[in-house]
Write a protein that binds this DNA or RNA. Sequence first.
DNA 1: CACTTGACCTGTCCGC
DNA 2: TGCGGACAGGTCAAGT
Length: 293
Amino acid sequence: MPELPEVETVKRGLEGRIVGKTVVKVDFDWPKGFPNAPGDVEAFLLGASITQIQRRGKALIIEISTGYALVIHLKMTGQLVFVAANQSDRFGAGHPNESLVAKLPDTSTRVVLDFSDGSKLYFNDQRKFGWMRLMPILAVEDLPFFQKLGPEPMASSTTNAMLRARFTNRKNSMIKAALLDQSVLAGVGNIYADEALWGAKIHPRTRVGQLSDSELNTLFTELRSIMEQAIASGGSTDKNYVNADGQKGSYLQIARVFRREGQLCKRCQTTIEKIRIVSRGTHICSACQKERL
DNA sequence: CACTTGACCTGTCCGC
DNA sequence: TGCGGACAGGTCAAGT
C-alpha cells in the first residue's frame, strides 16, 4: 500500500534510472489501467525521452519531452520496477531480486515500457486499482485528483497553523478519518496515520474538535518525523510494495504499532490491539492512546 | 457542505 | 483437499 514515503522512494529510484531514456515501445492490454485515446501513445510517447519525475501526494508524474506526462497512481498493490538491459549485471545469481526479475512480466504486469538501451519499466498491479494515464503536462493539475489534493506534509511551506485550520474544518470527523482524507492533507495512508497517532498519544477515534492546538501540533510533528524515517528506510513493505529496483522497504521493522497487534507497546509494554475504525484496520496502544467521550 | 459507507479488484488466509 | 467468506486499504461515487 504505497503512501507518501513509498511513492517518494519509487520516485527517487526512477530519477536515477529512466530520466533521459528514450521510449521505443509500450505494451499494455488493459484499458482501465491505461485509458488513453487511440494514437496518443504513438504521437506523444514513442520516440520521446523522459525529462523529469515528480511526486504529488501518492501520485507520480513522469514528464516526457513531448510536453506530455505519464500520471501514475499505484493505489494498493501497484509496482514500478526498472530492469536494466543486461539483467545479470544487476540481478545476477545471488542477487536478492533475482527471483522477482526472473518472473517479470508476470500475471500482474499491466504496462511495459521499453527504452532504447534495452532496459524496461514494468507497471505491475495485482488488484488493478492503480492506473497510468498519458496526458499533457499542463492538464495534469486539472485532474480532479490533483484539484482536491491537500498540501504536502513535508514541504517547508506547509505550516502547523495552516494544517490546524484545515483539520478543524473537519471538527466532527474522527482524527484518523481526517488524516486519511487526501483533500485535507496529501500522502497519508493507513500505516503512517496509525504510527503518527501513537507518536502523539491520540486515540484514532478522537474527534478533531476535541484536540487542542498543541495536540495537533504534536501530531503533525510526529507525522513528519515518521515519514522522514520511513523514507530513510525505503518505505514499508507489507505484501506488495517494492521500490524501482524491486526491493522491499524496511520501515515495518521499526514500526511502533502498525502490524504489531499482540506485541508490546514500546513505550509502556501494554499489548498492542488491532481494532476497526472508519472501515480500516487500526493499531493502537489503549494505555497510551486513551479514548475520550 | 460535512461526513460515512460501499464499490472497485484479486490473492491469501481461516474455518469447516 | 476444497470451498465460502472475511480481509487487505486508496480513492471515488453515492448515500445520509
